[in-house]
């Protein structure tokens, strides 16, 4: 499986990333997948308490986070015989509306591609060391202690 993991600390454009990823796969001799499932997550404009959100801060554990993502992607991709996997996850300060995560799974069929994409997304939310902190408009902040419902 072709795998790329990136943790940019600056805003990224999901479709530009995908275009570069597809070009990279092509350059590597990858023939392209018949099915590709995508997930793009963006930061909500609302904090967990319903107030306006100024920004979200993403902390991670450098080294461990990348390795965790790789292990999760290899395990999940292996179960669904995925042919390619791209994970792009922001770290640092992310503004409402900005992309926070992009997952793209290439496979031979839509079923495995979609299931792999969803399973990997849930795995990275719960099993990779990332932490979110909400910054409020009054300058205060709150660490998020749980994930949003599926």
């Amino acid at each position: 499986m072709h795998l790329r993991i990136a943790l940019p600390d600056q805003p990224f454009h999901p479709f530009g990333c995908l275009e570069r990823w597809h070009r990279h796969l092509h350059d590597q001799g990858h023939s392209g997948s018949a099915a590709e499932a995508l997930f793009i997550g963006r930061v909500r404009g609302e904090a967990a308490d319903g107030s306006d959100l100024e920004a979200l801060e993403l902390e991670h554990y450098p080294g461990m986070t990348e390795r965790s993502l790789e292990q999760l992607a290899q395990a999940c991709g292996g179960r669904y015989q995925a042919r390619s996997c791209l994970i792009q996850h922001r770290v640092g300060r992310v503004l409402p509306g900005e992309p926070i995560v992009l997952v793209a799974i290439g496979a031979d069929r839509r079923g495995p591609a979609q299931r792999c994409c969803q399973e990997l997304l849930e795995a990275l939310k719960h099993e990779a060391p990332f932490w979110k902190r909400e910054w409020h408009v009054d300058g205060s902040s709150t660490w998020i202690t749980g994930n949003t419902p599926l």
């Binding site: 996850h89 995560v101 997304l121 099993e127 990779a128 060391p129 990332f130 932490w131 994930n147």
Partner: peptide, 10 residues
């Protein structure tokens, strides 16, 4: 040794 609160990525 690292102590880690619940993960909240994605």
């Amino acid at each position: 040794l690292a102590f880690l609160p619940p993960f909240t990525g994605g």
